[in-house]
Design a protein around this nucleic acid. Structure first.
Lengths: 84, 84, 84, 84
DNA sequence: TCAGATAAAATCGCGC
DNA sequence: GCGCGATTTTATCTGA
């Protein structure tokens, strides 16, 4: 075999570590799913919840820039702007 | 073989027809991609364009309902509503 | 506003074109659905048909992929790749 | 407003929980990144490592899938499935 | 920065 | 009708 024992062992450790972290990640993703499911069964709309979470995670400047662009495009297309 | 010639031929025709339609669909998807790419190189933001297209395809009532919910959730969380 | 008449017209053309292509795509998707429906009423199982279509589209790709993976393994083990 | 104090508190808890889990997830993703970076600086190719990890996670799934596809073919040809 | 790959999210269709 | 699984669409990430 062209690869030496030392190197093979290092690779094995890296791979194992990443696979363990991937498992942890999968567990957390499952937990998140479960919270959304419980929230839904309590009567909350998961889609709106995702919207809220997204808004809270984005900083205000980005949101304003995005909204500004949307309004500019709407106006260019002759659509009415948000006035609400 | 357990399946008769007549049936096999029918299946073959259905499959062929679907595969042809899938090809047409793939071509159209590629065309859409190309338009987005050209729009981008002209200076338009594809993400905002997608937003606009989504807004135009949704009817007004759905949008208002969604916005109403978002504001209700924001208020429940002590976040400020959109007043812009 | 940030978008002048010239630019607004360009944007309008891009959006219109994409919306038209989206409509074409929706029509084709509906056609595909209709073929599946007819096939089903003829006695074929749509799920199995989808499997067959998937297999047929993947067969060629899989062979190439397999060769690629073999080379990846070899490389990871310090063996030389096929260059043929 | 449509959401009373009790309900608002429930919503707040759900959102907080999800945001906390999202943070944990982000930390793990950062850890994974860091392992790849260290492995790369040790001389391993991250792309190949990803391939290996993918292969290892798919190996078992692929075997089950292959068997399933064989049955799909048999069924499509009117032959009986394995029931073992 | 950009295209191509990867992962996440939304949508659709089935069965219970 | 509602969750569940599969497909498709969207967003993020990586390497060139």
């Amino acid at each position: 075999m062209a690869i030496n024992t030392q190197t093979a062992e290092e690779l094995r450790l890296f791979i194992n570590r990443i696979e363990a972290l991937n498992n942890e990640k999968a567990n957390i993703v499952a937990d998140i799913q479960e919270v959304f499911t419980r929230a839904k069964s309590t009567g909350f709309d998961p889609k709106i919840m995702r919207e809220i979470i997204k808004i809270r995670s984005k900083d205000k400047i980005d949101l304003e820039e995005e909204e500004y662009l949307i309004n500019a495009y709407k106006k260019a297309l002759g659509m009415e702007e948000d006035n609400a």
